[in-house]
């Protein structure tokens, strides 16, 4: 006699951690399935690791998917050199702690041509230091599949993207001609030079991410929690003022206040929010009544309407 789900729950022995609720369990199962399928079907997968909360969840799921083995692919971090200091420290700690293969790549043009988010504008800077850098790293590694932590609820063009997002040899995405993706039967067949971006978190929302972090006790970069920090107000954003490369413009002063970040990217392009939520419970409580979306603090999304789609078509994640 097959057991019903209910009987199974009762027969499970008590564990230190309460079982996941069915909603998160379903999302977790789906993500693990995708991880295993990509790892089995592709020759050389890699996981894009951006150190943020979504990447942290992604990594946790990868560890679960391949347990008791180790994660069978490297993590790739595209370092623009403009990340928050605490992010880099966290990255190195995690790689050490979980015995991960970490590949870090920076576009040499950044240093050679002195490209910074202050001098070249966010659009050009992002194109060179993120999109072009990513393509360089993927080509250099010969990776045929790259996991990313993108979610469909983040942005309108992502809502359209498949879980296996097919890319041409020059990394382009053709949103008008995507492969049909039925059930959970994924087509992993590609020709030489082509690749797939795989998104195990496609169906997760921001609240799901936070509730999962809480349920699974996943470590995060401390910048997600509120603390007294120095900041500068610029273009309607609060920019963290701790990096000596941030130069004050006329009229700007360093202020102090209790702030935190809802997303983490390059510090000059990521705005903080005022908050006193200094732990997970408080962050979730704040989130549930939030009236603005998480990407509101991201300058690169606002360059122009449809700018994420444009960047994605050119190879951005």
């Amino acid at each position: 006699m097959p057991l019903s789900a209910q009987e199974t729950e009762i027969k499970n022995p008590p564990v230190s951690k309460p079982p996941l609720d069915p909603h998160l369990k379903a999302l977790e199962n789906e993500a693990i399935h995708i991880f295993r399928e990509v790892a089995a079907e592709f020759e050389k997968p890699v996981m894009l690791y951006s150190i943020g909360k979504d990447s942290s969840v992604l990594l946790h799921l990868a560890r679960k998917a391949f347990y008791p083995g180790r994660v069978p692919f490297p993590l790739l971090h595209v370092d623009t050199t403009w990340k928050f200091k605490e992010m880099i420290e966290f990255r190195d700690e995690i790689a050490e702690k979980y015995d991960l293969d970490l590949v870090v790549h920076t576009n040499p043009r950044g240093k050679a041509e002195g490209i910074t988010p202050f001098t070249h504008g966010s659009a050009f800077y992002t194109d060179i230091m993120k999109t072009e850098a990513l393509k360089q790293a993927l080509d250099a590694g010969g990776y045929d599949a790259a996991f990313g932590g993108a979610r469909r609820d983040e942005e309108a063009s992502r809502a359209k993207e498949r879980i296996y997002s097919f890319r041409t040899p020059d990394h382009k995405w053709d949103p008008r001609n995507q492969r049909p993706e039925l059930w959970n039967v994924y087509n992993g067949m590609i020709k030489k030079g082509e690749s797939v971006r795989a998104f195990p978190l496609s169906n997760w929302t921001e609240v799901d991410i936070w509730r999962y972090i809480q349920a699974e006790d996943i470590p995060l970069v401390p910048l997600y929690y509120a603390a007294e920090r120095p900041y500068v107000e610029r273009d309607g954003m609060m920019i963290l003022a701790e990096d000596p490369r941030l130069q004050l413009l006329p009229g700007e002063t360093v202020q102090h206040g209790s702030i935190r970040f809802r997303t983490l990217g390059c510090f000059p392009l990521t705005g903080a929010i005022r908050s006193t939520a200094s732990n997970l419970e408080e962050v979730i409580a704040e989130l549930e009544i939030a009236t603005v979306s998480e990407r509101q603090g991201r300058a690169i999304d606002r360059d122009q309407s449809g700018s994420m789609e444009k960047k994605k078509r050119e190879g951005y994640f």
Binding site: R152, A156, S157, K160, P175, V207, G306
Partner: peptide
């Protein structure tokens, strides 16, 4: 416009591909 996330969709005023949305 909230749903038709692709530029081609906005330009033509039609839905071309599936969009996934989340609410609770």
């Amino acid at each position: 416009l909230l749903l038709d996330g692709l530029q081609a969709e906005r330009e033509q005023g039609i839905t071309i591909d599936v969009a996934y949305r989340y609410f609770a």
